[in-house]
Design a binder for these strands. Sequence first.
DNA 1: AATACGGGGTG
DNA 2: CACCCAGTATT
Length: 289
Amino acid sequence: MHGRTHLPWRTTRDPYRIVVSELMLQQTQVERVIPLYEAFLARFPSFEALAAADAGDVVRAWRGLGYNSRAVRLHALGRAVVERYGGRLPSDTAELRALPGIGAYTAAAVRAFAFELDDAAVDVNLRRVIHRVAFGLEHPAQADDRTLDTLAIAAVPRGGAHDWNSAMMDLGATICTARSAKCLVCPLRDTCAAAPVDSATLAARVREHAARRTPQEAIPFERTTRFLRGRIIDRLRDVPARESLALDALQHDLAAVVPSDRLHEIPAVVDALVRDGIVMREATRIRLS
DNA sequence: AATACGGGGTG
DNA sequence: CACCCAGTATT
């Protein structure tokens, strides 16, 4: 058996454990999820346990993962699964897509990894590997996402979606990575349009076709809204569950970690967090939802 | 079609 | 410092 056999979600077929892993893995690296995964499952062992909790408890358990809206969505998903399906996650794509936090990728991943149905979970790894094999290096792109999806789906062996998706992701994460390609040890080297990849060529192509920086990313992190949101949520995580914090006190405490000329932005950022369902306001006090 | 959304790891 | 990461929802 090759590949990353140590991943804690790889051996289970429990739909709950699979969705939790998939929500955690959305835009968050495997190595960072691993140490937090089992602790989360111990705290919330089932859809019912998740649904019975406050969203704020889930956001607390989410510390270290980032993209906190995912915690709120996972909590909402738990409640929806309990209410709509009696605690049983559906395997139908349309029903999965209708649940909070589940998009095209996650629906396919749940189907393949939890239900062993023939579907292609086309994440950044799959897209890169398929592109290289079928068209060569991905910078510049020779095919759009829809084309890559179609190729991926056609390549899934009947009854073998779980292992196939796992293998393709492992290939993309360990051998055919974004920054390099170890074609010499790649099982697909004989049929791959990109092999053998020259590392200097790959680096040059990536530089040449680098995506335009978004305005938010072009400025120092301490000047971004994300930074403020992160500091506010971190502070609220330290407030005991079901207790609240005065907005004044929040502003005072954050003076230690936030540039002084940004403290006046805190109320507006809190408003945004409330709109996102992450923070709850009670008069002049706030807490995690 | 663009943008917002975290934060830590890597070369 | 720039790029990368098992994407989704909103505008």
